[in-house]
């Protein structure tokens, strides 16, 4: 990447009271790219992005730097954040009910979002809402403009939420587990929609999920998180073909395959540590077959350019890539 990233996160840390749950995140987001954020429950996927957008409750202490188009967002004044949120960066959540007001008709709610984030007013705003409803694939949108949220199915509510997020024509859409609550066939529709929207609007997409399959469908790049840190990043195809961090290897091995047989699944022994009570060295060391004394005492930094890994004993990168770099 030669041009400056759209968003640059450096050393982002989040602490709730006395417990630190995000331990220094470094990530760059390029314009128009789709980054998947994966990792097990509690590893800090949601908190990282809530912190980056200044959406955490007051008791949370955030430090580090989050620069969006050169502007600092970390602990920025409220006016700055409100100017960026919704317009330049929008976020959607797993639960549609957290975003739509249940006692108001859907159309007017969307018009309000459009009015808030753009210069469109009146009929123009309504036309824009109908365009957004069409964009996210709500059938019969004119008739549905005046329905209440509960009159839409789960998949449609998720579409409405995406429409709402698109109201300000954001440069980045952060989608936090947007399909987890949906049935398989509806999930496939939403993943398809997200991929299409990104191609059509050129916005960047941050797709947070624990489903590595879903992530591979819509993302170019993955960041694997473990216990509050990014432990590996790289292109989707590279990470699946040549995972380098032992945790990434374990994660990929433990997913059963649809075209697989019925042998025992390979497992990662042990369990995820509590992110607020981490060992002094690598947080994965206790579960890792490659761990030695170094791992027990020193935290491995995230090293590499584009493709990076935080492990003292990382597998070598894809040999063909290395040769290409040397040639």
């Amino acid at each position: 990447m030669n041009s400056a990233p759209l968003m640059a996160i450096r050393g982002l840390e989040v602490t709730f009271g006395t417990s630190r749950v995000v331990h220094g995140i470094d990530l760059d987001i390029a314009a128009g790219e789709a980054l998947g954020v994966v990792g097990e429950s509690g590893c800090g996927k949601s908190v990282t992005w809530l912190a980056a957008l200044g959406l955490l409750p007051g008791m949370a202490a955030t430090s580090g730097s989050v620069r969006f188009q050169g502007q600092e967002l970390c602990n920025a004044p409220r006016a700055t954040l409100e100017n960026v949120r919704g317009r330049r960066i929008a976020m959607i959540f797993q639960d549609p009910s957290s975003c739509l007001n249940p006692v108001r008709r859907v159309g007017p709610q969307l018009v309000e979002a459009v009015t808030l984030h753009t210069n469109l007013r009146g009929d123009e705003a309504k036309t824009e809402v109908l365009r957004l409803m069409e964009l996210v694939g709500i059938p019969d949108r004119a008739a549905r403009f005046n329905l209440y949220p509960h009159e839409f199915s789960g998949g449609q509510s998720q579409r409405l939420m995406i429409a709402m997020a698109l109201a300000g024509r954001p440069d980045i859409l952060v989608a936090d587990e947007p399909t987890t609550a949906l049935d398989a066939t509806i999930q496939a529709q939403i993943l398809d929609l997200l991929g299409r929207l990104r191609r059509e609007t050129g916005m960047a997409l941050i797709f947070i999920s624990h489903d590595l399959g879903a992530v591979s469908q819509v993302c170019d790049r993955i960041a694997v998180m473990y216990a509050g840190r990014v432990v590996e990043t790289g292109a989707v195809t590279e990470i699946f073909a040549h995972p380098r961090h032992p945790y990434t290897v374990g994660l990929l091995n433990s997913i059963p395959r649809l075209d697989g047989g019925q042998d025992d699944l390979l497992t990662i022994p042990g369990a995820v540590p509590d992110p607020s009570h981490l060992p002094p060295g690598c947080a994965f060391a206790a579960r890792c077959a490659r761990a030695d004394e170094t791992c027990a005492t020193a935290i491995p930094p995230l090293r590499g350019d584009g493709a990076a890994v935080a492990c003292w004993h990382a597998a070598l990168p894809n040999p063909s890539l290395r040769e290409a770099a040397l040639a």
Binding site: S153, G154, G155, Q156, D183, A184, T185, I186, Q187, A188, Q189, L191, D192, G195, D211, L212, G213, A214, V215, S216, Q217, V218, V236, T237, F240, A241, L252, I255, R257, L258
Partner: peptide, 20 residues
């Protein structure tokens, strides 16, 4: 066909249209 396969992009799988 709707099951996302880790490591595979969308490709040409059949996506069921319509409501649940």
């Amino acid at each position: 066909s709707s099951v996302p396969i880790p490591g595979k992009p969308l490709g040409d799988r059949v996506i069921l249209q319509g409501e649940p």
